[in-house]
Computed example of a mutant assay.
Amino acid sequence: MTSDTTDPTPPADPVFGPGTRVLVTGAASGLGAAITAAARARGAQVLATDRDGDDLAEHEGEGIARLDITSDDDWAAAVAWVERRWGALDVLVNNAGVAGGGRLDQAGLDEWQWLFDVNVFGMVRGVRAFTPMLKQHGGHVVDVASLAALVHPAGMASYNAAKAAVLAFTETVGHELASYGVTAHAVCPSYFRTNLMDSLRGRDTAIAQVMSRLVTDSPVSAEDVAEAVLAGVEAGEELILPDPAARAAYRMKVDDRSAYDGVMRHQAARLEQLSTVTTSEEQA
């Protein structure tokens, strides 16, 4: 038996479907490369950019175009390219970023400045550059933050603060541009396997060891996170927690603050122990 009733509401077009115009920063490797591949597999047109790519003014194909997110000139060139080739942008993925950290008496202000220049102001530059276009056409802003925006382990004050700033910025973008048909999404993954540690700077060798081990040992790949990001955007999630560890850690903080504080302070004590061992080995 067949039904003679039909659903009067057609399904919405997928955000990353054929014809969607997407710009991804930090696309040469890691999560940026995985998001680029996943979006292209769904039929999207992707302008994949990275600091070490080819000249954007001459970029025509599906290679990597140069975009240094700390350069206003590079962002202006990206806007000009999109206007010339596509006319508008549907999804801006601010993925490019760097790793850092260090305990309060170890990390220098130069390290703090570098982290904020790249991870915060690079993203701010990109959104500001594309805001006039987004106001005209609507779209999505996807900012890759970190679980560190929500859960704040010891030894990572600079990174935690930078990623928390990204989260606050993204929420503000979503509120300010909502009336123009723009949705902003903050992505907050836990540790996953990527080459982010290649960018790590800092004097605190103990925290560098901890972070590198957590990345290397993670069961979650960049491809896993990329698929969760695309699914979250298409589901309209403004806070995307793309892996089980991120969801569990954030839920603990929300549901049982005393347990969360206990875990964070235990980790801080272990970091101090590791630092003592590391210092002794370096002096031997």
Rank of each mutant, 00 (worst) to 15 (best):
6 T>H: 03
10 P>C: 05
10 P>T: 12
20 T>R: 00
24 V>E: 12
37 A>G: 14
46 V>L: 04
54 D>M: 06
55 D>K: 01
56 L>F: 02
56 L>E: 00
58 E>D: 07
60 E>T: 04
68 D>L: 00
76 A>Y: 08
76 A>M: 04
77 A>E: 02
83 E>N: 12
100 G>D: 03
101 G>W: 02
106 Q>F: 09
113 Q>G: 10
115 L>W: 10
127 V>E: 09
128 R>V: 11
128 R>L: 12
129 A>C: 11
133 M>F: 11
138 G>H: 09
142 V>N: 08
146 S>C: 13
154 A>E: 00
159 Y>K: 12
162 A>M: 04
166 V>Y: 04
168 A>K: 14
170 T>C: 08
171 E>V: 07
173 V>T: 14
173 V>M: 00
179 S>E: 10
179 S>W: 06
183 T>K: 04
183 T>H: 08
186 A>M: 15
189 P>W: 01
191 Y>H: 02
194 T>W: 10
195 N>Y: 13
202 G>D: 11
207 I>L: 06
207 I>N: 02
213 R>E: 00
216 T>F: 01
218 S>E: 05
225 V>M: 07
229 V>L: 14
230 L>H: 13
233 V>C: 15
237 E>I: 05
240 I>S: 13
246 A>F: 09
246 A>H: 08
251 R>K: 15
252 M>K: 00
252 M>S: 10
254 V>I: 11
256 D>M: 09
260 Y>D: 13
262 G>K: 01
266 H>N: 03
272 E>A: 07
274 L>S: 06
280 S>D: 09
281 E>G: 06
282 E>Y: 09
